[in-house]
């Protein structure tokens, strides 16, 4: 690999993983709101920048209803919670040597890496939301099979594609509502396990391409003030399936095309682990990316390790705070017995 990791006093490099659509759940990380100063300040900053007073109320509701999973709510909340958690871990003294996000998590990762200011990232996302809320009704289906098998099963079904390859046996089928229903029926009939991802838009499918053209250009170009920079912290991209170079990072079009582009998260994660032993830290709701990482040879064999800032799902009140404290405690005990990365 081209760049080198910064290895601090023999500790294994830390790589943040930031999850995207599907990872959201009601009151995600909410225990930290009011108890962690930096987490609270970051969330409040987001609500102020987004100028959305309802969003906070919806986030904190125990039962916000199905619209919680809509792009209008889930995406700005995921970006904010991912970044607020990352900042909380950084404030505790653990700086990432690299970052990798999934889908909207990649925008949060870009904020951590210094590609965007938080305010610009929120502005970018708010514009995505205004645009893609008009996308045809759709969603995503997680399938426990290889891309080859899934691709074969999708033959002849309109408006669905493989929108993400998360691992050797985890693929997301993305697209329109009726196409997803047909795909699900066919996969289940063939004995292939699948589960709906909590989403209401056809993310990572070409259906997202049709939308911007339908909008009128009445408002000034909202992107004109956003200037992405080269990452200051090493960053991996799910859309590139590997390291993010400065040319892509500074190309606004690269970011604008993301909602309709496929995600190669599995490849990007392999690229991270190919660099040698590291400590993966999931800074987002749930443990969707941690479970993927724990099935990789590097983590399963114990060469690299994987910790998550939050519990796998919504548990008893206070569980977020306990999980974060336990993770920070584990991170503080990282010792030199972890093999040093040979980059």
């Amino acid at each position: 690999m081209g760049q080198r990791y910064r290895i601090v006093s023999g500790e294994s490099p830390v790589v943040f993983l930031l999850p995207g659509q599907g990872a959201q759940h009601p009151r995600m990380a909410a225990d930290l709101y009011g108890s962690s100063e930096i987490f609270t300040a970051t969330m409040d900053e987001a609500f102020t920048i987004l100028d959305d007073t309802v969003l906070r109320e919806i986030w904190l509701r125990a039962d916000p209803g199905p619209m919680f999973h809509d792009i209008t709510h889930a995406q700005p909340l995921l970006l904010s919670v991912d970044y607020a958690l990352a900042r909380t871990v950084i404030a505790a003294g653990v700086r990432p040597d690299a970052v990798l996000g999934h889908s909207v998590g990649e925008i949060a990762a870009a904020v951590v890496a210094g590609v965007f200011d938080f305010a610009d990232a929120l502005l970018l996302l708010a514009t995505f939301v205004r645009t893609y809320r008009h996308a045809p009704a759709g969603g995503m289906l997680a399938v426990a099979s290889s891309p080859e098998v899934v691709d074969e099963r999708l033959t002849g079904i309109p408006d669905v594609v493989i929108g993400a390859i998360n691992g050797p046996r985890q693929v997301l089928v993305c697209g329109g509502r009726s196409g997803l229903t047909a795909a699900r029926r066919r996969l289940l009939a063939d004995g292939v396990t699948c589960a709906e991802v909590a989403a209401r838009q056809p993310f990572h499918s070409p259906l997202m391409n049709d939308v911007p053209a339908q909008l009128d250009g009445a408002s000034p170009d909202p992107y004109s003030t956003i200037r992405p920079r080269a990452p200051r912290t090493r960053m991996y991209s799910g859309y590139l399936g590997g390291p993010l170079d400065a040319a892509h990072a500074t190309d606004l079009q690269f970011w604008l095309s993301q909602p309709s582009s496929p995600v190669y998260f599995g490849s990007a994660l392999r690229a991270v682990l190919a660099g040698g032993p590291c400590t993966l830290v999931e800074t987002g709701p749930g443990q969707s990316l941690s479970t993927l990482a724990r099935r990789t040879p590097a983590v399963a064999r114990g060469e690299s390790r994987c910790l998550a800032a939050l519990p796998p799902r919504r548990l008893a009140p206070g569980a977020d705070t306990t999980a974060m404290a336990a993770m920070l405690d584990q991170l503080s005990h990282l010792t030199t017995d972890v093999p040093t990365r040979k980059d």
Partner: peptide
């Protein structure tokens, strides 16, 4: 989850 088993 520690064993790498998510809901899927």
């Amino acid at each position: 989850t520690e064993l790498g088993f998510d809901s899927l």
